[in-house]
Design a protein around this nucleic acid. Structure first.
Lengths: 81, 81
DNA sequence: AATTTATATACTCTTCATCGTATAATGTCA
DNA sequence: TGACATTATACGATGAAGAGTATATAAATT
């Protein structure tokens, strides 16, 4: 389903992918989220560690939510089968 | 599954619930996440808008991850049936 | 009730995210 | 190639997050 976010790089990838998928420009996302185009660029390139509120607003502009999920250390646990 | 985080209050609830479930004190979580006990308190009470990095570290201390999820505006869509 | 333990609040200081703005770099297309 | 659109980078200013530390409540235990 969603993408696990453990660092700025993960976040940047998620944002860029969603934006491209929706065929939007950085300026479009920026305006929707009330931030600068420059900031969207920085976020996508993992160049800044954003504030939670900012992340939430940018993701919302891309029709995404942030969610907590139980941590999974392994991708596949054979004992489950 | 996880809990949608759209504001500080959502985050605070998620953190406190997870901490109680694991039977930990704020100081325990704080040390694991390398933050002050005071900050954990503030987060749980939604009294501060944290930085993403901080949120990730605190959630990790509680065996949780942050994830992006497609936004669902409605809980139940009758046209799906 | 008194003592210990846990949580909440307070205050100054430092660091850093974001702004506004401008411009450089890169990409796109006629 | 040239014009236009998009993205990346720069820089000073500002505001807010988090630290350290201390203390005030509140909760629990004896």
């Amino acid at each position: 389903m969603g993408k696990i976010i453990r660092n700025n790089k993960d976040l940047g990838e998620a944002i860029r992918l969603a934006r491209k998928t929706m065929d939007l420009r950085q300026i479009d996302v920026a305006q929707k989220a009330s931030v600068r185009q420059a900031l969207v660029s920085e976020l996508e390139n993992g160049a800044t560690t954003a504030k939670l509120g900012t992340v939430i607003r940018v993701l919302a502009a891309l029709d995404m939510d942030l969610s907590t999920v139980p941590r999974r250390k392994v991708k596949f646990d054979p004992t489950e089968y």
